[in-house]
Structure formats: structure tokens, C-alpha cells
């Protein structure tokens, strides 16, 4: 088929060439196919997995181990712990990142020390420490700082400037201690991620915003952070997924309402080791898969205005206009 074009010359036929062969790839694919087949065969035929123990019934009259009451409670604990510690991590992380970028030396040094400390201490150690912090204080409160010392200055013994206080064993135990430990640790990592995101934005952006009369806060909220999110979201997805798994560390606080701990309890009662571990593995796989789907949509939201697809559509329209095409209301051109 040849078509006349604007220049009057006939358009030559489209190129039909023999594609380059890649024999190496085919060998690789064959090897992988065999390995996958072996793996699937093992999963379905090996009795050691005891799938019915995992899915349908782990003891007479009971559900599969994945769906028993304590394990589901543990799952809820894991999800809540992930949610709350990530909220602390992201919120505090943004604050620390902004402090770190502050022109004020004191603020940026404090932020630096914060990230240094919480990145240096292993989460496991941090979890145990927070579980034992009530050794330091019997009560935790809010009020006048140094109230005892100020009282002594004026000769009053046991002057109490606390507006509100709570027994530390009530506050700093179990779930809350684990949540704070994980959240504070996460904030250090998030601070570095947010800082990288903010620094990736061209200074021209904040200059343009400032030149329009925006305040520093507005520049950050409306111009810099929304763009920085493109850089921040993918590593934050990593952090969330890592956090799901790190929640298993709070068993050492100790917190019992957590997925892995609960499955280990079943393991200890029934002496069935591997199926319990596989059940935990499957739950973690499911949680992380859901999170990855969420991440996809979040990334798409913050990618507005950058999409290659949008650019390509626009280029197509421009070409159609150049060729005398008509643009309809929906933007679809007819050549």
C-alpha cells in the first residue's frame, strides 16, 4: 500500500525486517520455567506444609491457624501498630527534615543529633528500652519544668507544678511503648527521606512562590512538598512495608497483641512449627501486596502534571493540528 503525502511523493512501504534473535533469553526462560515447576510441585505435594492446618482447621472444631481468633487479633495489632508508628514517623519526620534544612544552626544541629541517635540504635534495642523506661520515672506528667528545683529555691519542699500526670507503668507499657519506640525510630529515617525530597526541588520553584508573596509555610505546603512527594512516596512505601515486618520486634517490649507472636504461641501449644511460620509468611505477603496497590495509587496522585502519557497525548494533538486535523471537544482529533 502506498499513500500520497503532502509533498506529493509516494510513501514507501513500512519496513518489514527479520527481528534479532535472542537464544540466550530462551535458555534462561526454560531454566526458570523448570525451577518454578519444581517449586510449585513441592508446595502442593509436600505434606510438611499441612495446608489444612493453615487454612481449614488446625485442631478439631477450630478454624485454620491463619484465621483463629488470637491470630486475627494479632493481625489487627500489627496493622494498628504499623499505622500509628508510621503516622508518628511521617509527622515527626517532616518536622525534623524542615528543622534540618533551617538556616538556624541550633535547629539544624538538634535535627542532626536526632537522626544520628535514632538511626544508630537498633529498633529491637529501642523497643526493649522503651519497655523498661518506667524504671526512670514513676510518673510522667505535663506542667512546670524543674518544679522541684524551683520549689527548693523558694524554700518549699515538694512543690508540685504538674498540671496533669499519669503513672508511667500505665502509659509506657505494651502497645504504647512499642508504638513510640517504632515511631521515633521511623521519624529519623523519614526525616532523611523528606529532606532528600525537599532538596530535589529546583530552587526556582520556591523563588517563584516567594516572588508571588507567599509565606515560607505556604511555599512549603503548596509548592515544595506536593512536588517533593514524588520523590518521597516510593521510599516511604519501602518504610511502611519494613514497618509491617518490624512490628514483630515489639514482642520484646513486651507486646503480645501482634501477629508473629500469636502464631508462635500456637506453635508452642501444638508443636507444629513450619505451618505456623508459613501462615505468618502468607499474612505478611497479603498485607504488603495491599500496601503496594495503595502505593501505586498514591504515586499516581502525586505524579499529576508529570505523566509521560499526558505529554504524549498532547504531542499527538499538536501533530494533528499541524496536519490540519480538527480537535473535538474531548481532545480527540480526526485526521
Amino acid at each position: 500500500m502506498t499513500q500520497p503525502t503532502e509533498t506529493g511523493r509516494a510513501r514507501p512501504e513500512a519496513i518489514k525486517a527479520v527481528a534479532v534473535r535472542h537464544p540466550g533469553r530462551w535458555v534462561m526462560i526454560a531454566v526458570l520455567a523448570v525451577l518454578v515447576a519444581m517449586f510449585l510441585h513441592m508446595i502442593f505435594t509436600n505434606d510438611g506444609f499441612r495446608w489444612s492446618f493453615i487454612f481449614s482447621s488446625y485442631a478439631p472444631g477450630k478454624r485454620g491457624v491463619m484465621f483463629t481468633e488470637p491470630v486475627l487479633e494479632g493481625l489487627r495489632g500489627t496493622l494498628l501498630l504499623t499505622l500509628f508508628s508510621m503516622l508518628i514517623g511521617v509527622g515527626l519526620g517532616i518536622v525534623v527534615a524542615v528543622m534540618r534544612l533551617s538556616p538556624n544552626r541550633v535547629l539544624s544541629s538538634v535535627a542532626w543529633v536526632y537522626t544520628w541517635f535514632f538511626r544508630a540504635v537498633p529498633r529491637l534495642v529501642l523497643a526493649v528500652i522503651f519497655g523498661n523506661l518506667n524504671i526512670l520515672w514513676s510518673r510522667i506528667g505535663f506542667g512546670l519544668p524543674f518544679d522541684k528545683q524551683i520549689g527548693q529555691l523558694f524554700g518549699i519542699d515538694n512543690f508540685d507544678g504538674q498540671i496533669f500526670s499519669i503513672r508511667s507503668t500505665d502509659l509506657l507499657a505494651g502497645f504504647v511503648a512499642g508504638m513510640i519506640a517504632l515511631g521515633l525510630s521511623e521519624a529519623a529515617y523519614m526525616a532523611e527521606i523528606v529532606r532528600a525530597g525537599i532538596q530535589s526541588i529546583d530552587t526556582g520553584q520556591s523563588e517563584a512562590a516567594v516572588a508571588l508573596g507567599m509565606s515560607r509555610g505556604q511555599v512549603l505546603r503548596r509548592v515544595v512538598l506536593p512536588q517533593a512527594m514524588r520523590v518521597i512516596v516510593p521510599p516511604t512505601g519501602n518504610e511502611v512495608i519494613a514497618m509491617v515486618k518490624d512490628t514483630s520486634l515489639v514482642a520484646y517490649v513486651p507486646v503480645t497483641g501482634e501477629l508473629f507472636f500469636q502464631l508462635q504461641q500456637v506453635e508452642a501449644r501444638t508443636f507444629v512449627v513450619l505451618p505456623c511460620l508459613v501462615a505468618a509468611l502468607i499474612w505478611y505477603l497479603i498485607i504488603c501486596s495491599v500496601l503496594m496497590v495503595i502505593q501505586f495509587f498514591v504515586e499516581r496522585h502525586f505524579g499529576k502534571g508529570y505523566g509521560a502519557a499526558g505529554k504524549a497525548r498532547q504531542r499527538l494533538r499538536d501533530i494533528q493540528v499541524e496536519q490540519g486535523g480538527r480537535i473535538t471537544a474531548t481532545g480527540e482529533g480526526t485526521p
Binding site: 529546583d202 520553584q205 512562590a209 516572588a211 506536593p226 499529576k304
Partner: peptide, 15 residues
């Protein structure tokens, strides 16, 4: 606010 500025590299907000 009362001084407009136009930059060499446009600096529109891409998002």
C-alpha cells in the same frame, strides 16, 4: 505582592 516577576526558566508549578 505588588511586584510581579517573570523568570528565565518560567518556574511554573508543575503539579
Amino acid at each position: 505582592q505588588s511586584i510581579g516577576m517573570v523568570f528565565q526558566r518560567f518556574n511554573l508549578f508543575p503539579h
